[in-house]
Design a protein around this nucleic acid. Structure first.
Lengths: 190, 190
DNA sequence: GTCTATAACTTGATAGAC
DNA sequence: GTCTATCAAGTTATAGAC
């Protein structure tokens, strides 16, 4: 059984995705969970608390996934493949949340904004290092590692359009096609 | 010489990028152009007029670029290459505007919202057709054309981070690397 | 925990003097 | 065209009854 607090966070993620954080009001949110706006404050402290939870929960998923990938001892190529899977799984499992995470983090207040940007920068650096290793070993094409990094990172930002509940078969097909394009694109001709 | 109206539109694009359309107030904008908020209304009719201009100017650039590409009589592969260049040129020439175009169109009011979504859908359909032709002729990898389409479309959504004024050399290097990854990724092994 | 009432403030936009 | 003054509506959040 979901707690009311959980329901509030889930509906908030949907609402923030649809209207954006700033345009989404606490009255909108209250309507969706059949409460008056003031009653929301029995469950949460402030509107921004919801944004913080969405942003840092997602950041945590990415960081934990990166931890696993780094420990795996795989080749750079297999690591990139695993990271593409990680991004796609997160994007499909929590599509509204990931959209808010991608687009609305700018509305975090300090010190949370700085903390968030630090987490993101660390993740990007770890991803870039893997790409650089692949380039150094000749497996990956000789491109600017930052260009490759952001091309991969942003190429999945449409995935939430794709989401339909319980579509396990499509998920594997989607992963196969996306990986085919991006990983083959990254591979050198050798 | 720039008219005051032009300056207002340019500063608005920057402001909307930084804070998002909803969080950016007319008083914020007025401060940036050294006016009082009420004076803005001597130059524009409403806040949403600015958003409309940004969205539809960008849409027009993409549509005109697609017109040229379709008329070129090139192969699907060369057409995709030209479209990647089109996206990158637009993204680098007007980076704040393109960010607003990508993320803030949802705040358009009807009937502009529907008109915008129709333009976008038409553009996507024309792009998808080119990809399908490439797949049919065996030049492109056999993937879901919609997956390929959105992977390409979203892959440049980080470009505004890259922007520095007058960086013509980097522009060609950037285009070369992005094209190398995405076009080689799309190509079949044959 | 949920409500009504309301405080304290910000929003986009207009009226009218200069 | 720009200003001051202002409006009507909407914002997050709190106080206190039940």
């Amino acid at each position: 059984m979901k707690t009311k607090k959980q329901v509030i966070f889930e509906e908030a993620a949907k609402l923030f995705q649809e209207k954006g954080y700033s345009a989404a009001s606490m009255r909108d949110l209250a309507d969706r969970v059949n409460l008056k706006a003031s009653s929301l404050y029995s469950h949460i402290k402030a509107k921004e608390e919801i944004l913080q939870k969405i942003c840092f929960d997602n950041a945590s998923h990415f960081t934990q996934g990166m931890d696993t990938v780094e420990k795996s001892g795989q080749s750079p190529e297999e690591k990139v493949r695993a990271l593409l899977r990680l991004h796609l799984e997160i994007a499909l499992d929590d599509p509204t949340s990931i959209t808010v995470f991608n687009d609305e983090w700018k509305h975090l207040e300090e010190p949370h904004l700085t903390r968030f940007l630090n987490l993101r920068r660390d993740y990007e650096n770890r991803f870039r290092t893997i790409i650089q290793e692949g380039i150094a070993s000749g497996v990956f094409r000789s491109v600017d590692p930052t260009v490759a990094l952001f091309t991969l990172l942003s190429s999945l930002r449409w995935i939430h359009y794709w989401h339909r509940p319980s579509r396990k078969i499509d998920r594997e097909a989607l992963l196969r096609d996306v990986t085919a394009i991006l990983l083959n694109g990254l591979r050198s001709g050798k």
